[in-house]
Amino acid sequence: MPVPILAARDVTKFYGKGAGRFDALKGVSLEIFEGESVAIVGKSGSGKSTLMHLLALLDRPSGGSIELSGSDAVLLTGTTLNTTRNRTFGFVFQQFFLTGGASVLENVILPLKIAGIGSRERKRRGLEALAALELEDKASNRASNLSGGQKQRAVIARALVNNPRIIFADEPTGNLDTATGAVVEDILFALNRDKGITLIVVTHDEDLAARCDRRIYIRDGLVVSTGSAVAA
């Protein structure tokens, strides 16, 4: 049995204390293997976003542990944690979080800038990522001038530019119409299939979830069922 790239071991998370305490996760265990595409499915308030934050090492669990390639993530602190996040994860959000006034290229190379990569190399890799998403002609446009689909493609280029091992996609098609959404889905699954990037999709969209290798259903802070794809 290979070592899972990400694993949650009886993870709990609560906010507040005393009578006002709210348990967002009540003991979640799961394993995600390299190259998989996994959907975390649940309604709003189910705890799926909290789970994603914990898996992406943006937050620490109240109990249990998160393991990255078999080692406890609690050991990662300070610079190591920042470097790990920068190198390992790419993010695609429902709301694009692009800086409107800056150029598309500037937005895309942000992870490289944070990684401390030189400006020439940044530009080369940024344009490469944009070319992969057929956006190279928009490189010098302001991000605010892009259409919704183009914005989400720019966001994917940004998630991709640092060659991450895992891409987290939080409702990646939530803000797009069906046709554009389908295109974005195709791109994400192609990345998963062709480049072997582990894809973790957080969604309440059953159709999107159905395209993943595996689905993990969350309700009220607990995993209610898991299922493998029958057909994509």
Binding site: T79, N82, T83, R85, F89, F91, F97, L110, P111, I114
Partner: peptide
């Protein structure tokens, strides 16, 4: 706010 959050999620340190 969003931009700062994003940069931090991408591994930018608080001191930077």
């Amino acid at each position: 706010t969003r931009e700062i959050g994003l940069m931090k999620a991408m591994g930018m340190s608080g001191s930077k």
